[in-house]
Design a protein around this nucleic acid. Sequence first.
DNA 1: AGCAAACCTTGACCCAGATCAAGATTTGCT
DNA 2: AGCAAATCTTGATCTGGGTCAAGGTTTGCT
Lengths: 229, 229
Amino acid sequence: MTPYTLESTRDVLTRLPLFCELGEGDVDRLLPGVREYRVRAHEMLFNKGDALDGIYVVVTGQIKLFLPTPQGSEKVIGTMNSGASFAEAVVFLDIPAPVSAQATQEGVLLVASKHAIIELLDHDPRFARKMLASLSMKLHQLMSDMETCTLMSSVQRVVCYLSHQIPAEGLPEFEVKLDTSKQTLASQLSLAPETFSRALSHLVKSGLIEVHGRTIHVKDAQRLRAFQG
Amino acid sequence: MTPYTLESTRDVLTRLPLFCELGEGDVDRLLPGVREYRVRAHEMLFNKGDALDGIYVVVTGQIKLFLPTPQGSEKVIGTMNSGASFAEAVVFLDIPAPVSAQATQEGVLLVASKHAIIELLDHDPRFARKMLASLSMKLHQLMSDMETCTLMSSVQRVVCYLSHQIPAEGLPEFEVKLDTSKQTLASQLSLAPETFSRALSHLVKSGLIEVHGRTIHVKDAQRLRAFQG
DNA sequence: AGCAAACCTTGACCCAGATCAAGATTTGCT
DNA sequence: AGCAAATCTTGATCTGGGTCAAGGTTTGCT
């Protein structure tokens, strides 16, 4: 994780959802506590249990959060794309990292120091609200992941994942570009890669989707949503 | 859920972890937005999907949060005891209840209106920090539950649960009083009641614990922690 | 106390999905 | 382009834990 300051950190900050509504003064206050880093694909950012210095924000690229398993494998908790933040608990609870983090592609990210965040928090209630909304979102997401993983069959889980990718406009047909490897996605759905593969081919046989590499063509969103089994 | 005001709401508020450090003025500002309710055992507070009016705080008793399953059964997400709050996402994201809530015993709870919370938030950064810590805690808890449910065998899950009940002092021997029915606990661990029962008797056979109704006597905390399988 | 309704345990069986194994396809590097 | 490594698919087999069933125990109500 190499420091990186080609681009103005200030400009980057004001484009991130978490910080974009800050006033001039607040940005200035935050700035000294923010570092910009460049990461290479597959680079580890930190390991579960590490002491961290602040909140991480993805500027470009993608970060995978996961739990290492006793058997040396991993369970993916989530993948963070541009604009997403993580390691909040480290700031608000002062605990070591509860997950490991690894870049899936090269990218740029920010680390906003614990101190800077707390100061900002005390100064701008709108930021506090944003932070709370962001955490609530994560909580909600995690709960729905829990629901998916514990209550549904393998095929349902995949259907569920695809359903969440349905674009807002109610078109019956659309494409999903998987933004991670199928392995990673499988782990996130708590499935063995083989099972994920089988679930997909099951859906193909049922005529609901077509698979071309990491692009999945959904042929009927309605029918997909209704599909159970 | 019947309104209940025998006790001074003000006194109750100032004893809750979430509100106990508020100044006089802040309490006064919050008070009009807070309602006190009494609930009977097994009473439903709300169902998944309901529109809610604010944050719930358990004063006495216990509330079970769960997801109804398509088969009419339920998956317990967590049990909230005195001092715990829930339904935060409803305030910060303005979404319907993502879970159902039911009292497991009679008790008293507060509902702090969305409006009152947001006002308080804008006024006292310490409260914001507390709220953030509370949400972070939940996030952390949920992640470790996820870890337990997806990465461990049935026996390990039970061991894991018991291990978390180990009291701070390092005594090798201690008692755990289950604060819910075994069914509920089983569901929380994502186990069938039968499997939970078998896991317990497995641990009994291994000489690690003794079970007397809902009281579990752990005979060697060290050995329990190390136990896998 | 006495009965009904929950709750818990134990046994027998079964199945969804993990694991193992072997090939096919894609990706990345020089 | 060409090779090695990573990724994905498909098949065969195995097993942990769910389900069904039946009995025992506790709880709560009148």
